[in-house]
Design a protein around this nucleic acid. Structure first.
Lengths: 101, 101
DNA sequence: AAAGTACTTGACAACTTGGAAAGTACTTTC
DNA sequence: GAAAGTACTTTCCAAGTTGTCAAGTACTTT
């Protein structure tokens, strides 16, 4: 009795799969950490969208947000957590598994 | 004055990006054509979902549906169109561009 | 004091998804 | 030949997702 293998699609992480969040994860995977504005400009989204999507990623514990000051002005920067890096790597692998190449 | 390059995320094809349709495209990219039931079993979705998603892909002209008979029973099979293959390849490339690998 | 910076939140409208169920058009079985 | 099954397709619906726009917060700068 062989249990049919689950299609790899089921391994896709929904939080990571949305284009904007996928782009955020990608950008953060390539840098130690990025400032809000740099991230916003890099992936080209509105402040509002970035703020919301970052919150979703933070709640999922894939990203950590650090608030500090640049002189007297507030500065928000984001980076991947360990979990975030693992999930990102697994997501990419799943994509490859589905694409089959 | 350099126009800032558009983030590759904008090149993602929404029709292809949804997990189920991504899986359909992937499966079809690996075969000449697949029968409805084989596709349904391969990607593990309900008849209803497969039928709907296939219609969306057909309307976008990424997939062509061929209806024939296996003996006296109807048989539906799907395959990628030329456009479908191009879009699929471009989508995968965009994913790679974003993932940066 | 007015305007700006750096975000965050809330109200919305527009879509997208999937499941359940019914429908279509036959074919097969009892 | 009536009931059941096959192979999908469609409709109805409830739920969740996205983005935009406007407003809010808490200061800083002019």
């Amino acid at each position: 009795m062989t249990t049919p293998a689950e299609h790899p699609r089921h391994q896709l992480n929904e939080v990571v799969h949305s284009p904007v969040r996928f782009s955020i994860m990608a950008a953060l995977s390539k840098a130690e950490s990025l400032d809000f504005k740099d991230l916003r400009d890099a992936i080209q989204v509105s402040d509002s969208v970035l703020s919301k999507q970052l919150s979703i990623l933070e709640k999922a514990e894939f990203v950590k947000i650090k608030k500090s000051f640049a002189g007297k002005m507030p500065r928000t920067s984001a980076s991947l957590t360990g979990t975030g890096r693992d999930v990102w790597a697994a997501h990419l692998q799943t994509l490859r598994d589905i694409a089959g190449g």
